Simulated scan of single mutants.
Amino acid sequence: MPDKGRARERGPAAETAGEGASPEIDHERLRRRARFLRELNEAKELRERVQPRRARVARMRHQMRMRTFRW
């Protein structure tokens, strides 16, 4: 049985998304997304400064994954 409380927590934005979201909601979503991406970038930079070796290894692994990935 699905939790109906969670559906209410989403608010009107989730309800109107299927009906063609208004520009206000899209603008708010884009603003939240931009803030999230800025914070994510900031966290990645901080991680690189705090753990340079681990960050370098993670970067190299990511590059290797991208090289071996088939499109």
Rank of each mutant, 00 (worst) to 15 (best):
R8T: 13
D3Q: 07
K4L: 11
R56S: 08
R53E: 11
A14L: 00
E19F: 00
R54A: 15
F69A: 15
R6E: 13
A34M: 08
V50Y: 03
D3S: 08
Q51H: 14
M60V: 14
P2T: 09
R38S: 10
A34L: 08
T68G: 00
F69V: 10
L30F: 06
P2G: 02
A58W: 06
R6T: 14
R67D: 10
A58P: 00
A13V: 01
A17N: 04
E48C: 06
R38D: 09
G5Q: 13
G20A: 01
M64D: 11
T68K: 04
M64E: 11
A7N: 12
D3V: 07
L46P: 05
K4W: 09
R59G: 10
R67V: 11
V57F: 03
W71T: 10
R53A: 08
R61M: 10
E24W: 04
R65T: 11
R49W: 00
R70V: 08
R29D: 08
A17V: 04
A7Y: 10
L37P: 02
E48H: 08
R6G: 15
A14D: 06
N41D: 12
M60L: 15
P23F: 00
E48W: 00
K44D: 07
M1H: 12
R59Y: 04
E28V: 04
A21G: 00
F36Q: 07
H62W: 07
E19N: 14
L37H: 07
G5N: 15
A7S: 15
S22I: 06
R32S: 05
A58S: 11
A7K: 15
M60T: 14
R65G: 11
G11V: 06
P2L: 06
R59P: 03
E28A: 09
G11A: 04
A43P: 00
R70S: 09
